[in-house]
Amino acid sequence: MASGVDTVIHMGVISTPRQAGGRMEMKDINVIGTMQLLAACQRTPSVRSLVVKSTSMVYGSGPKDPAMFTEDTEPRHQPVSGWAKDSVEVEAYVRGFGRRRPDVRIVTLRFANIIGPGMRTGMTAYFRLPVVPTVAGFDPRLQFTHEDDSLAAVRVAAVSEHAGTFNIAGDGVITVTQAIRHMGKLPVPTPRLALDALRQVGSIGADFSSEQIRFLTYGRVLDTSAARDTLGFTCEYSTVQAFDDFARWARSG
């Protein structure tokens, strides 16, 4: 690693296999990539700060979850696959690095789904489907972080003096039905088994991994007061405003 580097920002954990060319490649990039980056940091004495972009997917999603997650809420439904599981492993490696290099200030940011005109994710593809299937009988609460806010949060974390893990999300919540309505589309309640079948088809771009279907069943909401009180960071866009900025762009295109 180049000498004199004092701050490392790790944003290299990718969310869908399509970005990498396959699940194996994705896992390599996410987990092996993180290990290599941390190894390089460890050998570079000038590194003073490490900012890691993680995801609220690490909390999992299920019926036994409290209405809102704080950073120290114990996950009751540990993610078992995909991006979420990679992120759990990445966070574990980062904690290990923290033990080996206690002199490095580490900030881990757990983002709610990042959304905006510039984002292409499994979630944005989902809302852009011509008909949007929902899990029949459930209308989960979702949260979003606007893409501009996600960058601002990373910037604040990089220059802050504080260390720790912080939830980042736009204020408030939106249910999946509300979000689909804001897209001007019809939600189509679909049995869970049929959604599992959609995953097998797999070519429609939208994410129907088992982790994502759990998320679309039970939802997840973050308590963001730690970021506000410690980092002094609040998202400019509320969850609804962030989603609407994406929806306006998607509807006009």
Binding site: M68, R141, G172, I174, T177, V221
Partner: peptide, 9 residues
């Protein structure tokens, strides 16, 4: 979809 809900839904 324009109706208010709180954080608990």
């Amino acid at each position: 979809g324009d109706y208010p809900i709180d954080d608990f839904g």
